[in-house]
Amino acid sequence: MPLISSTTMLRQARANAYAIPAFNVHTLEMLQAVVEAASEARSPLIIQTTMGTVKHLGPKYLVSAASVAADQSGLPIALHLDHCTDFALLVQCIYAGYTSVMIDASMHPFAENVRRTAKVMEIAAAAGVNVEAELGKVGGVEEDIVVEERDALLADPEECRLFVEQTGVYTLAPAIGTAHGIYKGEPKIDFARIERIAALVEAPLVLHGGSGIPGEQVKRAVSLGMAKVNVATELRIEFSNAIKQVFGGNAEENDPRKYMVPAKEAVKRLALEKMELCGSFGKADELK
């Protein structure tokens, strides 16, 4: 099965009140881990890469690895470029075979965000590629994109309606109180805001900053209309901690397989937990 656009899977997820987990991966082992978890759970899957990972590994390598995973697993899998502020890189990823891209122009005024998003839509729509955009500013750190807490802005529900209407964007990530990275305290998610946005916007909504949110809060956000849940930081921490544990027991270890295998297993366990929270177990077979 080839890589597919995430548009259909996300629309179906929203219509049936579950979410598709989207995992940021940085190595082949991380990619394999989330695919193995999806195979076990029979879950649709969105594999995500940051701009930094694309620059590090190259879009063609990433598309090739994800394509092999989709073909061998037979699962509905999309490959998504997360938080892209570089138009040229975004276009490069589309031509390389990415099936979903995020144009992040949320740091600009509303009209400029609309203009930049609409420009991406013209290219992506012709290629059958899903487009995600952000409205408001999600706080925290996403690689080299830093939004201080004082600068984080919650999305206005009416602006969300106008934004989707004016851009035609397929999926929307509204800022609703989550943050990138690990939370220092209890997340302050504005559930009433999610509900108001969902009532005005038919497009599937995306929950950014999904690492470390208590399970019941994830489930509630999904029930209100969040059809995609992003997980990045937690995945990196699990992967890195497993490697540290191996070297803690044997500082002289020099066989990458000895530390990559446990790291891969740690990521797979976390991915399965997130799939269960999103309610995506068994949904892959419904998309065929």
Rank of each mutant, 00 (worst) to 15 (best):
C93L: 11
I103V: 11
A96H: 08
P204D: 13
T99V: 01
K184F: 02
I194L: 04
G181C: 06
V114C: 06
C160H: 10
E202Y: 05
V101I: 13
A179N: 05
A127W: 08
E159H: 04
E149P: 07
K188H: 09
V138R: 04
V114F: 13
T99Y: 00
K188V: 06
G168R: 10
A173Y: 11
E142T: 14
Y98T: 00
V91E: 11
P76R: 09
A179H: 09
D190A: 11
T117W: 03
P109R: 06
M102V: 00
L89Q: 14
P174R: 02
F163W: 04
A118V: 07
G140I: 08
G97E: 07
D156I: 03
Y170K: 13
F163E: 03
I103R: 13
E158S: 12
K188F: 03
E142M: 08
V91G: 00
P187I: 01
A118R: 15
A88S: 15
P109T: 05
I103Y: 06
E134D: 00
R196G: 07
A203V: 04
A88P: 08
V91I: 02
D144Y: 13
L153I: 15
G97H: 04
I103Q: 00
H83P: 09
L172T: 08
I182P: 08
Y170C: 08
G181Y: 09
I182K: 12
G181E: 05
A198V: 01
K184M: 04
L81Q: 02
I145Q: 15
A126L: 10
G140N: 04
E202Q: 12
I145Y: 15
